[in-house]
Amino acid sequence: MSAPAPAPNGAADARDPSGFLSEIIGAPVTVKLNSGVVYKGELQSVDGYMNIALEQTKELVDGKLRRNYGDAFVRGNNVMYISADS
């Protein structure tokens, strides 16, 4: 009754945050930080802090490519959102 997190089938499905994360592991994603800097790459892993490991990472500032990283770790407190690229 008081549990706020929706888990219709008991298990984490793609509809709640942890289910969404497990669904998009290995997929190309866009990560936007609170600073506005955007990282695009292949999502290697995420944890409960939203710490993120990306591969083949592109760093975009104001939409322009600034740098490339083979492997990158982003500390979760900076993350505004993680978007699955279509």
């Binding site: 706020p4 997190a5 929706p6 793609a14 509809r15 709640d16 945050p17 942890s18 289910g19 969404f20 939203m50 978007s83």
Partner: peptide, 15 residues
């Protein structure tokens, strides 16, 4: 809104 957790992290669609 597709889902959320206790921190009000949210999964959103067609954003």
């Amino acid at each position: 809104l597709l889902g959320f957790d206790d921190f009000v992290n949210m999964v959103l669609e067609n954003v």
